[in-house]
Amino acid sequence: MYDIYYIGAQNSEKIDFCQWPYMVTGGDVFDGSYDEIEDDDHIQGFEKKITSKKLNIEIAKTGLITLPQAIDNLESVTEKDIIATTAGKLYVGNSYMKCWIRGTAKDRWIADLDRISNELEVITDYPYWITEEEFRFHKQGSESSEALEWLEFPYDVPYEVSKVRNLQYINNNNYTASGFKMIIYGPCINPLIRIAGHVYELRTTLYDGEYAVIDSSTRYAKDRKIIKVKADGTEENLFNSKNNESSIWEKIPAGLSIVSWNGAFGFDIILFNERGTPRWTLHSQT
């Protein structure tokens, strides 16, 4: 059975389409295509535009949950995101697509009082399936950093690298370079990180309890941002604090890359690995 579910953007409410009262029966979520970019009768590249998908489900009375309750719960979760114009996430296994469930087409609602068929229409303006990978790099001298001494590194990482705590690696399992979100924790001054020889630098000061977020998770420049989150939760725009001599939006290469920094601060990196279709994985049922 495939593990398919929707997480609403408003309250992170979950609709599990592989657990009654909902059960997926079909659809085209595993299908995908690209639109060609054409110039003078030649294909210059490919892109994706606003895309709609179909997800066929059964909704049934289950235990203490009546059929009307199950229908109303599904539609209340999805319509909150429609009203707020904030995309939820449709998951297939570990991959998700940012989207809205904008329509339903119900069948068999006259003849059957305990079960109906429902075709859901899913629409997205970012038609990519995303799998996240998280990596943590600890401040030198912290307890977590001390534990790295016993960490097993891949066979192809040089011995010298594995013994230097502020010289580590990141392994991007995607087949192409990935967007990312980088979270840098204070206190630190002008934090600089090198990944595969590329410099990511902020020319700013982060005090204790503060952190900076470099959000390059999307391929669309208008959605990228750099912010500082202060100890009281307020945010400050750091877009003009980036080192303009080395692109801070540079994607992280596929495969193994060396990560180096001065060890005076800790940081996290979340990779956003994108595909045109979700990974073909099955969820074991017991």
Results as ranks from 00 to 15, higher is better:
D3N: 13
Y6V: 00
E13V: 06
F17C: 00
W20R: 13
Y34S: 12
I37C: 10
D40T: 09
I43P: 05
Q44G: 11
F46P: 00
K53N: 01
I57K: 06
I57S: 06
T62Q: 15
T62G: 05
I65H: 13
T66F: 11
L67Y: 07
Q69H: 00
T78V: 15
T78F: 11
E79D: 10
K80C: 06
I82D: 09
T85L: 13
T85F: 11
L90C: 08
L90I: 07
V92K: 10
N94S: 14
S95R: 04
D107S: 15
L113T: 12
S117I: 08
S117C: 14
L120D: 08
T124P: 05
T124S: 15
Y126L: 05
Y126R: 05
Y128A: 11
Y128K: 14
I130V: 14
T131D: 02
T131L: 04
T131I: 04
R136E: 08
H138Y: 15
E143C: 03
A147E: 13
F153P: 03
P154E: 01
P154A: 02
D156A: 09
V157H: 03
N171C: 04
A177Q: 11
R194D: 01
I195C: 09
V199F: 06
L202Q: 09
L206P: 06
Y207P: 00
D208A: 09
V213H: 05
I214P: 02
S216Q: 13
S217G: 13
K222Q: 08
K222W: 07
K225H: 04
K228A: 08
D232G: 04
E235G: 05
N237H: 03
N237D: 15
L238H: 15
F239M: 14
N244P: 02
E250Y: 03
A254G: 06
V259F: 00
I270Q: 15
F272L: 01
E274Q: 14
G276H: 05
W280C: 02
Q285D: 11
Q285C: 08
